[in-house]
Every structure is written in C-alpha cells, then in structure tokens.
Design a protein around this nucleic acid. Sequence first.
DNA 1: GCTTGATTTGACCAAGTGGTCAAAGGCACG
DNA 2: CGTGCCTTTGACCACTTGGTCAAATCAAGC
Lengths: 202, 202
Amino acid sequence: MTKSAPRTRIQEKNRSTILEAGLDVFSQFGFRGSTVDQIAEAAGLSKPNLLYYFPSKEAIYLELLSSLLDTWLDPLRALNDDGKALPEILDYVRRKLDMARDYPRESRLFAGEILQGAPRIEDALKGDLKTLVDEKAEVIRHWIAAGKIKEVDPYHLIFSIWALTQHYADFDTQVNAVLGGQDPFPGAEHYLEQLFTSLLKP
Amino acid sequence: MTKSAPRTRIQEKNRSTILEAGLDVFSQFGFRGSTVDQIAEAAGLSKPNLLYYFPSKEAIYLELLSSLLDTWLDPLRALNDDGKALPEILDYVRRKLDMARDYPRESRLFAGEILQGAPRIEDALKGDLKTLVDEKAEVIRHWIAAGKIKEVDPYHLIFSIWALTQHYADFDTQVNAVLGGQDPFPGAEHYLEQLFTSLLKP
DNA sequence: GCTTGATTTGACCAAGTGGTCAAAGGCACG
DNA sequence: CGTGCCTTTGACCACTTGGTCAAATCAAGC
C-alpha cells in the first residue's frame, strides 16, 4: 500500500503543505465540516492546484488518518515486558499525555472520526488495533500474575489511559473554560501519576 | 429565555418528534454533517413541514444542546456534602456511567460540540458549568481537609470522572472493536469503582 | 355544510460545494 | 532559443443544501 512517491522537490513540499493544512482544517471542523477551499486557502494554493496533488478531499483525509493511526499507537507499542511493570505503565501514561499536549490536532482528528462511528477505519480498529491491544493486555496479565501490579482488567486499564490523556486534547475547550485558561498539563501529569500508582502499586 | 410554549397537542407532538429525530441525526453526523432532509425523513415529515415548527436547522440543534446541558450536569449537581465522601463520589461515577450507557446519543452530541471548540455553548461553559464545578471542587476540598478522602486535585478528579465515563459512549466504536462486541459496561463499572476507591480511600 | 385558522406540501431559489478542463506559465535541458 | 514536461489557474458544471412561498388540505366550531 505504498503511495506512489512524489518525484520532484516541489511535489514533496506541496503535498506536505497540503497535509499540514488539511490537519489544521479537518481537526477543527471534521470531514463534512471542512471544505476544499478552506484547505486550499490554508495551504496557500488555489483549489484546482490542490486537486492536482490529491485526487479528492477524501484522499487528503484518508492519508492523514492512516499515517496518524500509526503514530498514535507508537507509545502503546513501546509498552514492553522487560521493564519494571509500574514505571513502564506510568511511562506510557506520560507519553500519551505528552502527545495530547504536543499534538492536539491529531488527537482531535482521530476523536472526530471515532465519534462518527469510524466509518473509514473500522477495519484498522478491528484488525491492527485489536491485535495490538490484545497483545499488550497479555503483557499486563503477566505482570498481574507475577504480582508486580494489582489485579485490574487490562482492557479497561488501557481504555482508561486513553480516555484520561486524550481528554485534555479533545475536550480542551471545556477544560480551559473550567480552569479559566490555566495550563492543565502540569496538574494533569501529577494527578495521573497519583491515580495509576494508587490503582496499580501492589 | 422560555421558548414560546406550543399551543396544540399536535404541535407538542411534532416538536418532540423533530427533536428526537434531530438527536438521532446530529449525534451521528454532527451539525455540519447533518442535513435538514435527513432529520425530516427521520421524523417522518416533509422538509417544509419541519421548518414550520422550527425556524432553522440551527434552531433544532441549539434547543437540543441547551436542554442537554442541564440534564447532563444533573448528576454533578446531586453531589452533596451531606453523604459520606467516598460513597458519594462513587455514586456520581455510577450515575455518569449509567448515563453513558443509557443516553449515548446525548453524550456524543455534546462531545461533538466540544470537540469543535464549543462555539455555541462557550458562554455556558465559562458561566454555569464553571460555577458548578468550582462549587463542587470546594465540597471535595472539604472532604480532603476533613481526612475523609485522600488528597487529590478536585478539578482533575472531576475531569477524570467525565473522561472515563463518557469514553464508553463517545468512543463506543473503538471500545467495541477492541472488545469484539462484548458489553463493556459491567467490566467498566467494576473497574471504575476499583480505580476511584484505591485513589481516594484514605 | 361553511368558515376560519392551523397544518402540510410541491415547486422553487440562491448559495455553497466537490470536482473538471482547457489553456496559460514556468522551468530544465538540448 | 526551443521543446517538452511539470505546475498553476480562471471559468465552469452538476449537485447538494438550507430555506421560502403560494397554494392546497385539514379540523373544529358554528
């Protein structure tokens, strides 16, 4: 499924400019809420010019989504049996929280897609994602069996890490409204460490 | 801000049919992604007839949103100082999780609006919502000061309850994909009780 | 059955949208 | 300078969409 590689330097530049602009726009307004004109303007190109690099609005969106899914799961892939259990999990939480802080657009794009029933990535969810989660749930179960962490449902543990970290990116508007604009991340980091430590420390 | 009350029985019935249909459609496709025709069809009315009861698509959406916000915060309003601290909080979590199970459309509609920056309810968030949360954060602080629960940041505690419970409604597609269709709620209820108990029990 | 007001609808419109196309500009290389 | 290819664009099109309107239908009281 490799995309036909862009030949010239200008193609490479324009394609990435468009993807960047698409991420901006799509993450703000969702797929249906975004227009090709908006993306073109954000990219500093004319609409036909944009459509010279991508065949359709949906193609831009799809390319963003699929390249995202990978990046998004990297922190989970890094969860490995070799380290000490609790620090390993806390590291995963921290990495996810960092991503929510540093890549909120990616988080929101993804959230929007899933919120609408993930029509375009259902297969990936039931395939790669499920496989990966199953695998990591097994790792967690081993840690539990070895007495390294308390007994919890591994799946809900993973869900809770996703929910808690992505909340700060996806619902950022709400968080900011309640906190009056104060940066939530330092507090969140400390709170989440406390939460997962007390939940898991044997 | 009371809406001019519907006079006849048929008006009342049609208006609520439309709102129900609007909830169905808007929660699935978001505001921009939904069309008046879709809502009209879901309501079993012709488009002009629908627009006889509501002046515009946005009016339907707004009425849904504002009536939602209230219902949505009821469980938090019920959090009171008089009960025992921990059971009171666990009750709140359970009520919220019940709502995620029983009213997923409402949860998703709300999530979609916030995800897009909450342009239509920013004021309510910074006003009523913030006031309510500030008030309940104070209650939680009292419990902490009285040694009834462990010391945690009250705001992040509330955020975490929102995030964890709504996740099961808003990202239901993802949860189902990973769990292979198995009902997540029994497990979630147990997991969340365990989580908040270990976090808060003094 | 007739009148009056509420309800319903088919036909229509203006604006916005995704996408096309032929022609024009630019650019590297002989 | 010229040629061939890559890039850019203005004009355009078909279709969707939110919303209007005048005319038709219906329902209740007289």
